[in-house]
Design a protein around this nucleic acid. Sequence first.
DNA 1: AGCCAGAATGTGTATATGCACGTAATGCTG
DNA 2: CAGCATTACGTGCATATACACATTCTGGCT
Lengths: 147, 147
Amino acid sequence: MSSPSLRLSPTECTCFRLRGAARRVTVIYGKHLAPTGLKISQFSLLGFIVAEGPVSIGRLAELVATDRTTLTRNLRPLLHDGLVEPAISGDRRRRDFVATAAGRALFKRALPLWAEAEQEVRTAMGAKLTTDLHGALDRSMEKLAEL
Amino acid sequence: MSSPSLRLSPTECTCFRLRGAARRVTVIYGKHLAPTGLKISQFSLLGFIVAEGPVSIGRLAELVATDRTTLTRNLRPLLHDGLVEPAISGDRRRRDFVATAAGRALFKRALPLWAEAEQEVRTAMGAKLTTDLHGALDRSMEKLAEL
DNA sequence: AGCCAGAATGTGTATATGCACGTAATGCTG
DNA sequence: CAGCATTACGTGCATATACACATTCTGGCT
């Protein structure tokens, strides 16, 4: 356990691997979702808003594990397209958002396309690898959350 | 094997998981590399250029599994900071790049900081999870490469 | 030589991402 | 109730990311 870092080469960068894989799958989901005009990140975000009723930026930031300020901007396209709208909240510091009827409808329409993409990826990887990857990612997120 | 997609909920999105994990670790590496002024993506890119001698955009795109056009712009900061410079290539369609002395020096200086970050992540995850995650990611990239 | 299919790249556009810094509202505390 | 630490945000800045479309070369074919 002394200094295992002596053997570490940038070739074995965890970050590089994760980012690479994320890019690859992002493209795949993007192709499937294209007809809806939604990017995968928008699809996810919209999904959380649909599911969570009125939510604040801060809460969304926790849910999607993204920087707060990033979400401020990621919400813009959704607002612009009328998929999401502001909701009154008790605390005037907070900005709550809800999905509009159009937003809920589009999400519903996008769902099967997302499932297609998910299926494509899972089929390519196989059931075992899918399980392994999800498991490893979930456990990683837990461990890294504490940092 | 008929339609396993019936049970798929967006909660189990492979893409969402991968992107989330990638974001998390990116921040960690970023903090460690901050003193060098390099982002993790720049560190990786610079590393490949240092290692591969004169390389073209297209070749780099393969190496880092990134869209060609993204690399065109990702190279800009490195060029601007004099870490990388154009190299003459036989084919005038191609633009080759090499690391400058400053680039090589900075990369060398960044290496231990990268190792720190990598260590932090690995320590948080533990050896087994690290191995599992890398294995799953590597196998995934292989399978997804064929798409 | 002349032409053209294909290769290697750049640009416009739009989104995603996080940090440093700044602002407004809340609630506690003296 | 005035003051202040805290909370919940937004903005400027820089980079990352990819697609559609346009451009420039190269190499082979006639």
